[in-house]
Design a protein around this nucleic acid. Structure first.
Lengths: 135, 135
DNA sequence: TCATTCTGTAATTCTATTTATTACAGTACA
DNA sequence: TGTACTGTAATAAATAGAATTACAGAATGA
């Protein structure tokens, strides 16, 4: 994964976990991560769609956790931001006339599913509360 | 990971494993993957630096495995191409005046090391021969 | 009521990264 | 000695990521 969505989402969630209950504005959060507030609002929108965050519009609005930090697994965060396959895919279609080219994507997918499973088992073992308590 | 270096390298190695001993040209390999031959030569150069491939210049030249496919682990391939951290890092420095911002990278690194370990244990369990035998 | 301060989201621009292409020197072979 | 390769640098094109601008709409409270 080359983009920063996982660390950004985890950073947001960690801030929310530390400020238990208080509403944090996208400007404040963006200042901690040092990115643009619009990106923060986009990620919050995504986390909200995945049930981890709720937010309030208008003056004094902001975001807060939608459930206890102990009930959010890092695997939930992974699923919320994951878009590309773990170890990458060629964007061109391999040659269907080549015995290897014809089947490589299928075998890569199986391999990826396998190693992603191992990764997920690790992430399932850590809650947001565990992570936030390190700070 | 967003670039295609892992699947490209694995595709190259699989072709070489299937053609046990024969020299394959970068043009032939590029035709199977459907990418530019110069990219293939670059990846082969990298795999050669990591002791997995050897190649011969000049007419009728090409590449071949430097050791038996059973002696190449997929974790070797991962190490050879891995450049960015598994789940990404924000490229901006987080705010050092924020308690979370100040420590987030350190804690992310620990987490990444942990899950990368799980991933590597999976990849260590598969040899190139195992993978190529599926075709 | 209405100015203020937020969110939500779309559209655009800017920048970085990735891939493709061009070019060519050097090597091996027949 | 021409041909068919590799190796590598340089550049260009394409794609993806992030920042910015813009603005409608919601909640607040003076």
């Amino acid at each position: 994964m080359n983009n920063a969505r996982f660390p950004i989402s985890l950073h947001i969630l960690t801030l929310l976990a530390k400020e238990d209950g208080a509403l944090l504005s996208s400007d404040y959060i963006a200042g901690s991560i040092n990115i643009n507030p619009v990106l923060v609002r986009k990620e919050i929108s995504n986390l909200r769609n995945h049930g981890m965050v709720e937010s309030k519009e208008g003056k004094n609005g902001g975001a807060t956790l939608a459930k206890p930090a102990a009930a959010i697994l890092l695997s939930d965060v992974y699923h919320a931001v994951q878009q590309t396959s773990l170890l990458g895919n060629s964007r061109n279609h391999p040659n269907p006339d080549c015995p290897v080219g014809k089947q490589i994507n299928q075998h890569l997918d199986e391999l990826y599913k396998d190693i992603e499973g191992a990764l997920l088992r690790k992430l399932e073992g850590v809650t947001l509360a565990d992570f936030a308590n390190k700070f």
